[in-house]
Design a protein around this nucleic acid. Structure first.
Lengths: 149, 149
DNA sequence: TCAACTATGTCAAAGTCCTGACATTGATTA
DNA sequence: TAATCAATGTCAGGACTTTGACATAGTTGA
């Protein structure tokens, strides 16, 4: 059992950043566990999920959407491509960006994984009082915006 | 410019998990940048910060407090020890847990880093309406608790 | 007492992610 | 038109983190 904080109000463990980190760690852990049963990692799942909502996104697009670097997304996509879950043209008429899309197998696996992940989402949603959910989402956005600038 | 979502309400990018991830990514990025100027990584800073509030914590304690594995914290602490920022006895009378403490240099560096980090904390705090801050912290805890169980 | 259980520290291997760098492509501008 | 700029994909290297495993130390209960 951890020691009790001597000065709660001044303790780091009470800070916004720490709480945010804690909530994110819990989410990450739950998703890791749920996705392992489907043979997916969190970044892989995120890539499939975004790609399902926005077909034809490029590597750089997906990297921005999932908050990783282009280089990281590059290896993620190569793994997904090797596994036959996504597909993209070897060459393209104009530009360098190759639009990616889910394969039938990718769509099937995503649907299976979504059941597990959406259950986690539901646990989060139920955990916060209903009338506060919209405000919570708004606060998330405010925080992200305040720190990105 | 990213494409607009076709069905906002059903889109993943609107989900709680995605927003949480986004806010956390923004925080992580801001802290990475701020701490680099002090020669610290986020896990290293987290270790020092927790250790300042709870002197004498062991490796396993710190790992739990900062949401990483014992193994990860082990390399973090070895780095901090080599850098002369923390100190712990080579052996201990009972048990295996070696209580760690900040050195004078560690305390000095932490204080310097705290200025940068607390400025980030302040940006977050200002970004959310004052009357919502307490509810936000509470919601963070509810989410963490709902997902840890 | 002794066996089972839990907790801790550590090692090894693999995966993941990042920084830095470079070449290519398209857009912008002088 | 030509030069500059921004964006993309990719490679290389290193840093970080995790999973898995093992030995050690303390606790619990038969």
């Amino acid at each position: 059992m951890p020691v009790e904080p001597p000065h709660p109000a001044e303790d780091v463990l009470e800070h916004v950043g720490y709480r945010l980190k804690r909530a994110h760690a819990a989410l990450r852990g739950a998703m890791d566990k749920a996705l392992r049963e489907h043979g997916l990692t969190v970044p892989q799942y995120a890539c499939l999920e975004v790609l399902a909502a926005r077909p034809g996104m490029s590597n750089a697009d997906l990297a921005r959407a999932t908050f990783v670097t282009r280089q990281s997304m590059n290896v993620v996509m190569r793994g997904l491509e090797d596994a036959g879950l996504i597909d993209r043209p070897g060459t393209v008429e104009t530009g360098r960006a190759r639009p990616a899309d889910l394969t039938a197998e990718g769509r099937r696996l995503l649907h299976a994984a979504q059941e597990s992940v959406y259950a986690i989402e539901a646990r989060m949603t139920r955990a916060v009082p209903g009338q506060r959910l919209a405000a919570l989402l708004e606060d998330f956005d405010r925080i992200a915006q305040a720190l990105d600038g």
